[in-house]
């Protein structure tokens, strides 16, 4: 594994696949087709984009000017919640989408769904980090533009992800939209099951703990 890190082409391949995310921005249909079918994307690049997305989300808290964004009350901030706010829905989306499309002739594999979704996140760090820096050089009136651009980056990412799913599963537009909605439902179902699971586990654990306590009292 470390042998690969010493080779030069490993890096050139990594940067090429990372650079491809920019091509995907302007040519989503073509780009996402090539991403899996021509193997232009890579796990390393997808992980990098995800990392940058999470990083942008965290940096924004500290480095966006208080003129644009409500100041953060650091005592109440749990950084893991912020990381999870991106990673957890992403995981649900990937698993849910793969689980559903696999049953209905989806051509994409789990890994491909992951790579494509991460590539779809590109607009977020690409917009948010420059916005964050620029926010320190504007007044409150000029700040109106920021909310708009911020929303555009989210909508852009959303559209990219939906288009990506259509391309890697080789779905028509109608089927793609149908499965996007179905995936959202699948995410809700998974959240529900997870919650039921957690509450049952915690009750089960609490039961044995109380038995243990009872025994300790008696002895």
């Amino acid at each position: 594994m470390f042998e690969a890190l010493k080779k030069k082409e490993t890096y050139s391949k990594y940067f090429k696949s990372l650079k491809f995310s920019l091509y995907v921005l302007s040519h989503p249909l073509d780009g996402f087709w090539d991403l899996t079918h021509e193997k232009r994307g890579s796990y390393a690049a997808a992980n990098t984009i995800l990392f940058l997305t999470v990083l942008a989300r965290l940096l924004k808290l500290r480095y966006t000017s208080f003129v644009i964004q409500e100041p953060v009350y650091w005592e109440d901030i749990n950084i893991f919640v912020y990381i999870a706010s991106i990673v957890f829905p992403l995981a649900l989306w990937v698993v849910g989408n793969w689980g559903l499309t696999t049953l209905f002739d989806g051509k994409g594999r789990l890994g491909q769904v992951y790579i494509a979704t991460c590539y779809g996140l590109t607009p977020y760090p690409l917009f948010q980090i420059p916005l964050m820096i620029a926010s320190n050089f504007v007044t409150i009136e000029e700040g109106q533009l920021f909310a708009t651009l911020s929303v555009i980056s989210l909508v852009y990412a959303g559209i990219l992800i939906v288009l990506a799913m259509g391309q890697i599963h080789e779905f028509s537009l109608g089927k793609n939209i149908l499965f996007t909605i179905a995936t959202l439902f699948a995410m809700l179902v998974m959240i529900f099951i997870l919650m039921v699971f957690f509450s049952m586990i915690s009750q089960g654990v609490a039961y044995f703990i109380s038995i243990g306590k009872e025994l300790m009292f008696r002895m």
């Binding site: 208080f66 003129v67 100041p71 050089f137 007044t139 409150i140 009136e141």
Partner: peptide
Amino acid sequence: FDLKYDADNYSKAFQQYR
């Protein structure tokens, strides 16, 4: 203004500063 998060006054000062 920065210390007390007074965005309005900060903006006024910053505009002139800029």
